[in-house]
Amino acid sequence: MTRTDSTPGPREDTLELTQEWDKVFPRSTQVDHAKVTFHNRFGTTLAADLYRPQGAGGPLPALAVSGPFGAVKEQSSGLYAQAMAERGFLAVAFDPSFTGESGGAPRYMASPDINIEDFQAAVDYLSVREDVDPERLGVIGVCGWGGMALAAAAADPRIKATVVSTMYDLSRVAANGYFDSSDSAEARNQMRASVAAQRTADYRSGTYAMAGGVVDPLPDDAPDFAKDYYAYYKTPRGYHPRSLNSNDGWTVIGGSSLMNATLLGYIEEIENAVMILHGDAAHSYYMGKDAFARLQGDNKEMVTVPGASHTDLYDGGGKEAIPWERIAEFLTANLG
Rank of each mutant, 00 (worst) to 15 (best):
G141H: 08
P53H: 04
N247F: 11
A196Q: 14
F69V: 02
R11K: 08
Y232C: 11
V164M: 07
Y233W: 15
V142C: 01
R27M: 14
G288D: 00
D95M: 06
P68H: 06
E86W: 06
A48S: 14
S111T: 11
R158M: 08
G288W: 00
A197H: 02
T37C: 14
I159E: 03
A197D: 12
F179K: 07
G104E: 01
L50C: 12
S309V: 07
M302R: 10
Y239K: 14
V24M: 08
G144P: 05
N176Y: 14
S184E: 12
A151K: 01
A187N: 14
L170Q: 03
A291E: 00
T304Q: 09
R237A: 10
A47N: 06
D113L: 12
W21K: 11
G138F: 03
Y203W: 05
V123S: 02
K300E: 05
M287P: 03
A56W: 05
T45N: 07
C143K: 01
L218K: 07
D290Q: 13
W250H: 12
D224K: 15
M210P: 00
T162L: 07
D13A: 15
A193Q: 15
D183F: 05
S165P: 02
L295A: 04
V163G: 03
V132Q: 07
D49Y: 01
H33G: 02
F38G: 02
E268P: 12
M84S: 07
A201W: 00
A187K: 14
A64R: 02
L17S: 12
L331W: 02
R192I: 07
D13Q: 15
V274L: 10
A64L: 04
G43S: 02
G254C: 08
E101W: 11
A185I: 14
N189L: 13
L170V: 13
V195Q: 04
N115D: 11
S6Q: 15
Y266M: 11
M210A: 11
N272P: 06
T44P: 01
F69Q: 05
R107I: 05
A153V: 11
M167D: 00
G146R: 01
T7G: 00
Q75I: 06
P219M: 07
D49R: 05
L295V: 03
D202S: 10
A209D: 13
Y266Q: 15
Y285F: 11
I270A: 00
G249Q: 13
G144E: 06
G288A: 09
A122T: 10
R188N: 12
G206V: 10
G78H: 12
L60Y: 03
A154L: 03
N189F: 09
L137G: 02
D32S: 13
P59C: 09
G138E: 02
L63Y: 08
E86H: 08
A209K: 15
T251S: 13
D32M: 07
N40L: 04
V92C: 09
P323S: 10
G213K: 10
R129H: 07
L79C: 06
H33K: 08
P223D: 13
C143I: 09
G317Q: 04
D169I: 03
Q296W: 01
A56I: 04
A321M: 14
Y80W: 09
M1H: 13
Y203M: 08
S28H: 11
I159Q: 03
N40C: 05
